[in-house]
Amino acid sequence: MNIKLKIWRQPNAKSKGRFETYSLTDVSSDMSFLEMLDYLNNNLIREGKEPVAFEHDCREGICGSCGIYINGRAHGPQHRTTTCELRMREFKDGNTITVEPWRAAAFPVIKDLIVDRSPLDKIMQSGGFVTINAGAAQDANSILVNKKNADEAFDSASCIGCGACVAACKNSSAMLFIASKITHLAQFPQGQVETHQRVKAMVAKMDELGFGGCTNTRACEAECPKGISISNIAKLNREFFVAKLKE
């Protein structure tokens, strides 16, 4: 298939970026979106031009580094799919595809399609951990967790920190990300020790770093490649109010 790409190019964080248009012929519909970008970059390098910078690592939907805003959707048009797992068969021959970086004050562009997602790490550092010694595998087996909690925790723990929730939210809110971490840790005995501290610290950090608040538009859960539900946000809100009341 032949496609046109309208890609955001920005040499560094300080410069003003702009869109460049590229035509690409003989794209296989079996290529992943990132393979298509590799193919484009090979062409650009051969022509002596600067390749398009984009972030990627696992290319199997587990590391969360590949987020790109494609045709007006975070991670592109396919539901519950990361950019690296998106296939070109989702597009039609002759399509023009608009490719932009995540847009949020909290996620400044570093280069082209790469943004600085370290604010999510800062939120994690503020409380997204347990301080007790969780031991080795056999210790985990000796602490009983009921099946319902284990399942819910597992769903929440599937968040890969890609930031699509922030990118898709009209308020650039990181609530779904935080909610998944809070819900995950709140299900386990190991997470109880600092549960109140954790939720207060993580929410305060989110507010401090320039993410917006939640207005329940559900854009986050619609675009989350892992299908994290906003029921996690309801749980986060409960945990937050309880923590504040117990102060």
Partner: peptide
């Protein structure tokens, strides 16, 4: 204020 540069699409 959280998205100074918006999406083009």
């Amino acid at each position: 204020k959280t998205r100074p540069i918006g999406y083009s699409k």
